[in-house]
Design a protein around this nucleic acid. Structure first.
Lengths: 128, 128
DNA sequence: CTCCGTGCAAATACTTTGCAAAGCG
DNA sequence: CGCTTTGCAAAGTATTTGCACGGAG
């Protein structure tokens, strides 16, 4: 299937690229709605699925039943707050490539991706 | 709430403890059904949720919309096959505790858990 | 006797899909 | 014009919950 240019599709990617919220589909939907009031939630879901398949975005994980997305596809890790659901980037934590290579040959598998996810309490939630 | 002893509840934990499948709720349900034909899927879900809250089991992640569980709560990592959904244990891969401690103080957060999940193709699916 | 645990069925809630209309190239 | 993208509403589906009954202590 050949991709065409679409303003709404680009808007979805732009919203995701210009936030550090690691939002879910509905949050993105509401942002786009400000500029394109007639957008449908289905369009957001459809395009997120497409972006993910194409490798333009990644899914951080599912928090309270909501899939959370990230447009930063460079190797980095995440921290998820168990209380408020906030997601933080951890840029200095990742698994060495040669460690992954070693696992690949030891286990006789093909490793395509590696996700490190910490969880606990964020700065704010820790206090309470 | 005070826990009572229940044969079905124990059966659920036993099934999970005696398999390396990292199964989902439905797989466990079908196993228990052999011994207790009148068990309800809701009971499996209820008890899995309870076990997870108590820390007796962990969730490996969600594969194709199915939450997958593991009764092995010792620190270890997992590999998920993107094709067949199989989950393998990786016992020699984990994040050092002092690395986590450093992140805790640097980011001013409380880290309660750390999950490393690789994904790709398993031995069998790699061939095809 | 008093709660806890369970089966059953209905309710949730996120996500996906079918279809006809609109839009890009 | 042909094929892609979208809005709308309906469908899907894993999981949760309300309720009344059975069971353990």
């Amino acid at each position: 299937m050949q991709r065409k240019r679409s303003k709404k599709r680009e808007a979805i990617l732009n919203v995701l690229r210009s936030t550090k919220e690691h939002p879910n589909a509905d949050w993105i939907y509401m942002q786009i709605k400000k500029e394109y009031p007639d957008i449908s939630l289905a369009t957001v879901y459809r395009n997120l699925a497409m972006f993910r398949k194409e490798g333009d975005i990644i899914s951080v994980g599912n928090v309270n039943g909501h899939e959370r997305y990230d447009a930063d596809t460079s190797p980095h890790s995440h921290f998820i707050c168990n209380k408020c659901g906030r997601i933080l980037d951890l840029n200095n934590l990742s698994v060495d490539k040669d460690v992954l290579d070693k696992i690949e040959s030891n286990m006789d598998i093909k490793v395509e991706d590696c996700a490190v996810v910490l969880s606990g309490l964020c700065k704010d939630c820790k206090i309470k």
